[in-house]
């Protein structure tokens, strides 16, 4: 296996892991609020979160590239803060992935919170448990399977990212070249043996992620008692 492929593989796993962890940290409190929110903006918020599901990744990539550019206020702010540019950097790709995989992490969590809210949370309120105790000792332990599902989905979905990374990260070895882009390179240069090797590894990892996901799904606690 080529050294560059190993680097791409490691980079992809690192990207997927960081993205899934950051998304969990962001989505758990937001999903908690969203699951209990019944206001008139609910459909707008839900649509906003689901947008990356339907948008072409290149569209997301295009707008993020514009945002990251040194001519844009956000790009300038980032440069002032860190001294580096976001466009064509690993950090930039991570930010792009956060948008790209957001619905895959948010939706299982919202569904999990809703299920817990309807049944167990109300029983705990009626028992007289405080808000903090309910969240820490009841809701979070009950949410474990949903957190597992959300992580597995966010991780697996980021693994397969292509268009968005290409748009905002380019194809820089060790920086932004993920497995899907390395694979594209091999096919373009007709190096099918390397392409097969990389594809099989990606297939195996993705399959393992989905097996784990369904294992978590199976252990989700049902409402039925």
């Amino acid at each position: 296996m080529l050294q560059s492929d190993l680097t791409a593989l490691w980079l992809t796993i690192k990207l997927a892991f960081i993205t899934a962890i950051l998304l969990l940290a962001f989505c758990i409190p937001v999903a908690y609020k969203l699951a209990g929110y019944k206001g008139k903006f609910k459909p707008f918020l839900e649509a906003l979160i689901a947008m990356p599901l339907v948008l072409p990744p290149t569209l997301l990539g295009f707008y993020l590239l514009v945002l990251f550019s040194p001519t844009h206020a956000f790009g300038q702010f980032w440069f002032w803060l860190t001294g580096t540019q976001l466009a064509f950097s690993f950090q930039g790709v991570v930010i792009g992935s956060l948008f790209y995989s957001l619905p895959f992490v948010m939706q299982p969590l919202v569904a999990g919170f809703k299920q817990i809210n309807q049944t167990y949370n109300e029983a705990a309120i009626a028992l007289g448990l405080s808000h903090y105790k309910r969240f820490v000792y009841l809701i979070l332990p009950l949410l474990k399977p949903s957190i597992g599902s959300a992580f597995a989905l966010g991780f697996a979905h980021t693994l397969g990212e292509f268009g968005l990374v290409l748009m905002i990260g380019g194809n820089i070895q060790g920086q932004t070249q993920v497995v899907s882009i390395a694979l594209y390179d091999h096919v373009e240069s007709l190096n099918y043996a390397a392409a097969h090797q990389l594809s099989l590894i990606l297939l195996a990892i993705s399959f393992a992620c989905l097996v784990l996901l369904f294992k978590f799904n199976k252990s989700i606690v049902g409402v039925k008692q």
Binding site: A123, I125, A126, L127, G128, H131, L138, P141, L142, Q225
Partner: peptide, 19 residues
């Protein structure tokens, strides 16, 4: 709020905590 009223309500078909 409920937890400060000194009242416990057992709702109909109240679930046990499954974990």
């Amino acid at each position: 709020p409920s937890d400060k009223r000194g009242v416990t309500l057992q709702v109909q078909s109240c679930p046990l905590f499954p974990h």
